[in-house]
Structure formats: C-alpha cells, structure tokens
Design a binder for these strands. Structure first.
Length: 275
DNA sequence: CTAGCTTCCTGATAGC
DNA sequence: TGCTATCAGGAAGCTA
C-alpha cells in the first residue's frame, strides 16, 4: 500500500541509481503488468533507452528516457521496485527484470499483480495512464480551506472517502487519511457537507504537514532499502493513528476505535474526532 | 454529475 | 494439524 510518502521514498532511492544508465535487455515474466502498449512493443521499445531521471505525480512514478518517452509505474497495493546487483537473490513474484549498462538490474516484484507499467512515447497524452485526471499535490499552495470547500462542501460522502479521491488531491490512501483526520481532529465518517469552516481549515493545514512528516520519517539508505527488498522501509512504526485500534491517542490517552468507512478500515480517537 | 457495486490478486490470520 | 473463510485495499469500469 505505498502512498505518496512511500512512492516519493522509492523515487529518491531508485532515481540516482538509474540516471545515466541504459537498458541493455529486458525480460517480462508476466505480461499482465504491462498496461500499455502490448508487452512485446513495450519491451523492444525500451531496450537501448537511457534514463535521464525520475519524477512522481500522486502515486505514479515516472521514469524519463533520453528519447523523450516516459515509463510510468503505479505500484497499487503490493508493488516493489528494486535496483539490485545481478546476483541478488530473486524474490518470489518477480514479474520484470531489466539489465542496466552498469551491470545492475531493475526488478519489479508484485505479489498481487495489481501494479501496472505504461510506456508513453513523447507525443502520447496522459489520458493513457489516467494521470490527466489527478488533482493537486498535497504541497500545492492552492490547497486551502476555500479550495476544499469549493470541491467538497456539497458532497454527502464521508470525508475519509473523499480524501481518497485522487482527482481532488493526489497521493492519499487509507493510511494517510487516518493520519490526516486524526491530526485534524475530524471524525472519518463525517459527511463533507457537515464540516465546519474551521475543520476545513485544519484539514488544509494538516494534509501537507502529515504528508511531509511521513516522507521525512521514511528516509532510508539505498543499502537498507535493498536489504528490506523494497518493502520494509515503510514508516508503519512511526504512524500515530493507522492500525492503532486499542492503543492510546497521543493527544488525550483515549483508546482508538475501529470503524469501516466506505469498505476501508479506519482508526480514530472517539474523544478527539467527534462526529 | 454522484453513488454504489464488482473486479483484480495472494498471503496472513482467525475460527473450527 | 489442516481446512476454509475473511480480510487487506487502489483504482478502473460498470450500472443506475
């Protein structure tokens, strides 16, 4: 379940390890992970390309190539991205392996195979990946109480569900919606149309704050990242709300309770986050 | 336009 | 011990 902070961590770790290297060969073990174009075209187009850098948009990772095309990856639930020495022990569920010009390999591992790759030539639009529909990044200065009110004030849906809507703010998933709502002291089930102005204001403040904090908490060396096979770096031990059912709230000591909101598990403090 | 439902997938865990 | 049921959840695609 990598969300924005985890995806950003991956970008910071992997980006410098691939920049300037080219792909000398590529093997796709499971074509299902290639969303566009077909696996054969994907493969033959990539071989010989050189990476110029890596960026991120919401939960999408974007590899920039020297011929102007972009390799896009969404990790969904269980995707893992590694740069490894050639002789690194191969993980189960490795679906793609690319040899790099420096002798290392890029590997994509995904237990549940929800993750997807796209290869966009330089004239291909973002409609192919759906990135065109993404909302603003959490650190965008446009993210104010007024922005949230304009987008969400009339909606009846629970605020927790709306935080997951990637077309409004990109990058928030189930972990950080719990963290953000706890930090902003808002009940996850509260319908958007009942939020007060001061609650919208707290949300607008806490969204970038929580995401920035989590990104820093995630910091890791490339060595430790590889040792954990690209999945054990996640900041679960630092979280303050997600998965804290039965544990005390850091603000008031009240025990967290569990709730299902829109088919998603949710932890909240019943005293700080009143409905 | 919104809302609700289903699909994809495997591994960990709970219950019997 | 060994089996089955449930849950984890991001996002697309569908219907109403």
């Amino acid at each position: 379940m990598p969300e924005l902070p985890e995806v950003e961590t991956i970008r910071r770790i992997i980006g410098p390890q691939i920049s300037g290297r080219s792909i000398t060969s590529l093997k796709i073990h499971n074509p299902q992970i290639i969303a566009f174009p077909d696996a054969d075209t994907f493969s033959s187009s990539l071989v010989g390309c050189s990476f110029t850098g890596m960026s991120r948009r919401g939960k999408f990772l974007i590899f920039h190539l020297d011929n102007g095309s972009r390799l896009v990856l969404h990790l969904r639930m269980t995707g893992q991205l590694l740069v490894t020495p050639a002789d690194h022990q191969e993980e189960k569920h490795t679906h793609l392996k690319a040899e790099l010009s420096d002798g290392k390999q890029i590997r994509y591992i995904d237990v549940r195979r929800f993750g997807r790759f796209w290869l966009l030539s330089n004239d291909e639009a973002d409609t192919v990946t759906g990135m065109d529909k993404l909302g603003i990044e959490p650190d965008n200065a446009l993210l104010t109480a007024d922005f949230l009110i304009e987008k969400l004030n009339k909606r009846k849906k629970a605020i927790k569900e709306m935080l997951h809507d990637q077309t409004i703010i990109a990058g928030i998933g189930n972990i950080y919606s719990d963290e953000i709502l706890h930090a902003a002291k808002i009940h996850p089930e509260k319908p958007c149309c009942y939020l007060t102005r001061s609650e919208w204001k707290r949300l607008a403040e806490q969204i970038p704050k929580v995401i920035a904090w989590a990104t820093e908490a995630n910091e890791i060396t490339p060595e430790d990242y590889l040792a954990g096979n690209g999945k054990e770096y996640r900041n679960t031990p630092f979280l303050k709300a997600y998965g804290h059912n039965g544990k005390p709230c850091e603000f008031c000591g009240t025990l967290f309770e569990k709730l299902t909101v829109g088919c998603r598990s949710s932890c909240y403090c019943p005293k700080c986050q009143k409905k």
